[in-house]
């Protein structure tokens, strides 16, 4: 047959070959069907290891207690005992090597997350002592009267008698 009949076929073959070569170069070696089969497990498996390497920032209260036993004793019998240290003191990151993360949040905004009164019957929120943030001493920070580690005591730093818990 004449050459001009075959020529388009060579062009098509070259394109197909080019795509196949590009595919082997671009698609990672570990790309394929993994644990969850075709439908849910078609992926690059090294991506799992990448996610596993993601740095942990919140190291939990267990880590804090190792060095700060005194603070643990301070809070352990308080109504605030279930609150993890890092919720107020900030995430651990690499403390004590790198204390950058530990920025204590003493703000009113933190306290009213739980203590702004929301009167929803049946909800656990209604059982928490609550205030109206607009009316209850809006000029002051909560910690000026209330001791955060144990709200049943007044804050010794500001020693103000007669504060109700």
């Amino acid at each position: 047959m004449k050459n001009h009949v075959w020529r388009p076929l060579f062009v098509v073959l070259a394109i197909v070959g080019g795509i196949l070569i590009a595919r082997t170069l671009l698609v990672p070696k570990d790309f394929g069907i993994h644990d969850r089969g075709y439908m849910y497990g078609w992926h690059r498996i090294s991506s799992e290891a990448e996610w596993k390497k993601f740095p942990v920032k919140y190291k939990t209260a267990e880590v804090c207690i190792k060095c700060h036993k005194d603070k643990y004793n301070d809070i352990k019998d308080s109504p605030h005992a279930p609150i993890s240290c890092e919720n107020c003191h900030g995430p651990n990151y690499d403390h004590p090597k790198d204390p950058v993360g530990l920025k204590i949040d003493r703000s009113r905004a933190l306290c009213i997350r739980c203590h702004a009164l929301l009167p929803y019957k049946g909800s656990a929120r209604a059982k928490i002592p609550g205030i109206d943030p607009v009316k209850h001493h809006p000029e002051a920070e909560c910690v000026m009267c209330h001791y955060p580690h144990n709200p049943t005591r007044p804050n010794p730093k500001y020693a103000k008698p007669g504060v109700k818990s």
């Binding site: 644990d35 969850r36 849910y40 497990g41 992926h43 690059r44 991506s47 996610w51």
Partner: peptide, 18 residues
């Protein structure tokens, strides 16, 4: 493109590079 997948522990993840 197979950029999101489920691990054998049932966690659904996204491959950001893909």
């Amino acid at each position: 493109v197979g950029a999101t997948y489920q691990t054998k522990e049932g966690v659904v993840l996204v491959d950001r590079s893909w």
